[in-house]
Amino acid sequence: MRLRSIIGTTAFLAAMYFCAGIYVLRFHLEPLLVPRADAPTLPSIPPLQSIGGHEETLLVRRYGVPRVGCVLFFPGQHGSIPGYDTQLFPAFTGHGIAVLAVAYPGQDGAPGALDLKQMRALGMRTLAAASAICGEHRVIVYGRSLGSMVAAYSVASHQPAGLILEGTTPSLASAIRLRLRVHWYLAPLAALPVSTLLAHDFSLKEALSQTPLKQAVAFQGTADSETPLSALRITPGLEKLRIVEVRGGTHSTTYRLAEHQMVEMAESMLR
């Protein structure tokens, strides 16, 4: 009887564990993907434009003067524009390429909360606004980490000068699986059919198949364990995407190591 009770309790707890994982993946993913972040210091540049409504708003801030063109920048899940404005943006603005930096709902002064169902439409509207500022063919869309997926989908209805992805992943499901495996207490959840549990599994293959854009480049660090280079290499359907290996680049250092290359790529796309 005691053994039967232990087995029954263990089975019940395991079922509850997996049910909780299924519920979060299906209905409560947004707060984990893009957590609210009240930065200790907001960006010093005031918002140039807001996209969306009160419940979900993207803010766009401009850095530099668009003498050559513009880069529309979608950051990773934690935003942190105040860090990029000193580490990354000067590399572009110093070459006459203005940076239009996006802040997600709930981050860097943007009100509201993220709704994945609205993110694709908001990304397209943001690109339309950038095109109105700089000219459609003078805009390069740049997305890093989670922002690379938003960037890839935003170009579906427009034809910017090019698309630069950095620290990207083949799909939302593949990124989630990898994150789950990193933590021992979450690793069993990676066995779930993540792609079918998500309300929509955003993927580079789907995004790039919807655009006639010809210049799409991904800068991927060889030491990136969060979005591994190998995952891109083995994913079919990414023939449009040129992959540039960044030697020694981790998920947090690739953009610094590839800064010069990315600026050169942007200048080439704008010619």
Rank of each mutant, 00 (worst) to 15 (best):
residue 228 P to T: 04
residue 116 L to W: 15
residue 264 E to R: 14
residue 201 D to S: 10
residue 203 S to K: 08
residue 174 S to G: 04
residue 89 F to Y: 10
residue 82 P to F: 07
residue 161 A to T: 02
residue 156 A to N: 03
residue 74 F to A: 06
residue 32 L to H: 15
residue 189 L to W: 12
residue 232 L to E: 01
residue 86 T to Y: 11
residue 252 S to H: 13
residue 82 P to N: 10
residue 144 R to M: 13
residue 143 G to Q: 13
residue 192 L to P: 07
residue 195 S to W: 13
residue 129 A to N: 11
residue 159 Q to D: 07
residue 71 V to Y: 01
residue 227 T to P: 01
residue 143 G to S: 06
residue 253 T to D: 05
residue 201 D to P: 04
residue 52 G to V: 04
residue 89 F to K: 08
residue 146 L to F: 06
residue 35 P to H: 07
residue 238 L to Q: 00
residue 261 Q to W: 15
residue 133 I to R: 07
residue 213 L to R: 03
residue 2 R to S: 11
residue 3 L to P: 08
residue 217 V to I: 12
residue 39 A to D: 08
residue 11 A to G: 00
residue 222 T to C: 01
residue 255 Y to P: 02
residue 151 A to F: 05
residue 216 A to M: 12
residue 232 L to H: 02
residue 46 P to K: 08
residue 22 I to L: 10
residue 70 C to D: 05
residue 121 A to R: 09
residue 238 L to H: 00
residue 256 R to N: 13
residue 75 P to R: 00
residue 264 E to N: 08
residue 28 H to I: 00
residue 237 G to L: 01
residue 102 V to M: 05
residue 153 Y to N: 00
residue 129 A to P: 07
residue 30 E to F: 03
residue 199 A to E: 15
residue 102 V to I: 13
residue 206 E to C: 03
residue 167 G to N: 01
residue 252 S to L: 09
residue 116 L to G: 15
residue 6 I to S: 03
residue 6 I to Y: 06
residue 64 G to A: 09
residue 64 G to V: 09
residue 42 L to N: 03
residue 163 L to D: 00
residue 135 G to R: 01
residue 169 T to D: 08
residue 17 Y to M: 09
residue 173 A to V: 03
residue 45 I to D: 04
residue 263 V to T: 15
residue 41 T to I: 10
residue 126 T to M: 09
residue 170 P to V: 04
residue 13 L to G: 03
residue 52 G to Q: 06
residue 136 E to L: 10
residue 177 R to G: 12
residue 70 C to L: 02
residue 47 P to N: 04
residue 1 M to P: 10
residue 194 V to D: 02
residue 134 C to P: 10
residue 128 A to I: 08
residue 32 L to E: 11
residue 152 A to E: 15
residue 179 R to L: 12
residue 267 E to Y: 06
residue 160 P to R: 04
residue 51 I to T: 06
residue 46 P to Q: 12
residue 188 P to Y: 12
residue 186 L to S: 14
residue 69 G to N: 00
residue 139 V to K: 14
residue 75 P to Y: 01
residue 150 V to H: 07
residue 214 K to L: 12
residue 253 T to G: 07
residue 111 P to F: 09
residue 6 I to V: 14
residue 249 G to F: 09
residue 62 R to Y: 03
residue 166 E to Q: 06
residue 121 A to Q: 13
residue 207 A to V: 06
residue 178 L to N: 14
residue 247 R to E: 11
residue 62 R to A: 04
residue 267 E to H: 11
residue 148 S to I: 07
residue 88 L to E: 06
residue 69 G to K: 01
residue 181 R to C: 09
residue 139 V to G: 05
